[in-house]
Design a protein around this nucleic acid. Structure first.
Length: 274
DNA sequence: CGGACAACCTGGCGGC
DNA sequence: TGCCGCCAGGTTGTCC
């Protein structure tokens, strides 16, 4: 669920409550959430460090501290928020990691499915796998996109989901971008015309930018750090709209599986054969 | 390189 | 009301 727009929204929402706060202690009831380091080492190392900045790379949240970077990946059901010590909210049922901060507040990481990951490292590059370009940056031009497509032979949806090809796109925004570009998710990447590549480049950026503007999609698990819902889901063209009329042509939106993932598309607006 | 698929986990939901 | 099985999707790793 949390894709680039959701992660970006979390990052923006954490800056005010987190920057300037110092870690006083660590509590966990499922230490597997901490990766690449024993929990005791994590506790010893993070204690006393102060948060200085909060940034994003791909779907990773980067909380920069005095000496290290606290790196969080929300995966499917992760939620990250700062609340006063005594506050109890529903998501706390799955809050497996809590950092006690000064000022009487806690940074809590809630994750119902325990897929999320937390790392502490001097340099995030030591943690990241190979990551593609940031689609919303100015240097992600259509030429860059076309260059990365060259030589690839794969269905276009699978390629959009590949984080080493382009960073930050997940299942929801891949479907939305492909619809807006009028491209069937099973089209092979090497069959796209110059015009289609140009359209897809534009719709990837527009879809993600809209997602950020709407503060993410709260379909089930995702919430902003302040606990409220995003509105992105109210503006979807195809995701979750299978069985409903296409907003462009009225045809019934179909759902199928592409590379093991639920995939939504309009069979008329996104023809497989052109 | 690409495709298929299991694994990691558990809540929510439809069906009976 | 309760139990069963399936679905959700980010990422890694394995096998062909």
């Amino acid at each position: 669920m949390p894709e680039l727009p959701e992660v970006e929204t979390v990052v923006r929402g954490l800056r005010a409550p987190l920057i300037g706060r110092t870690v006083l202690g660590v509590w966990t009831d499922w230490s597997n959430v901490i990766h690449e380091m024993p929990p005791e080492a994590f506790t010893a190392r993070i204690s006393g460090q102060t948060f200085t900045a909060v940034k994003r790379r791909a779907k990773y949240i980067l909380c920069e501290m005095t000496h290290d970077v606290l790196i969080v990946h929300l995966r499917m059901t992760g939620r990250l928020y700062v609340v006063p010590d005594e506050t109890v909210i529903d998501a706390d049922r799955w809050a497996h990691l809590r950092l006690q901060l000064d000022g009487g507040v806690q940074l809590r990481f809630s994750d119902a499915r325990k897929f999320g990951r937390v790392y502490l490292s001097e340099n995030p590059d030591n943690i990241f796998p190979k990551l593609g370009p940031e689609p919303l940056e100015d240097d992600f031009t259509v030429e860059v996109f076309a260059g990365r497509l060259a030589g690839r032979h794969k269905n276009i949806k699978a390629l959009l989901l590949d984080q080493s090809f382009i960073a930050g796109v997940g299942n929801i925004y891949a479907d939305e971008a492909l619809f807006r570009a009028g491209i069937h998710p099973l089209r092979n990447s090497d069959s796209l015309s110059v015009e289609e590549i140009k359209r897809l480049h534009e719709t990837i950026r527009a879809t993600l930018a809209d997602g950020v503007d709407y503060e993410g999609a709260s379909i089930n698990w995702y919430r902003k750090p302040d606990g409220t819902a995003g509105e992105s889901q109210e503006h979807f063209y195809v995701y979750g709209r299978n069985g409903k009329a296409c907003l462009t042509c009225g045809t019934i939106i179909e759902k199928t599986r592409v590379t093991q993932r639920g995939t939504h598309y309009c069979p008329v607006c996104q023809p497989l054969n052109r």
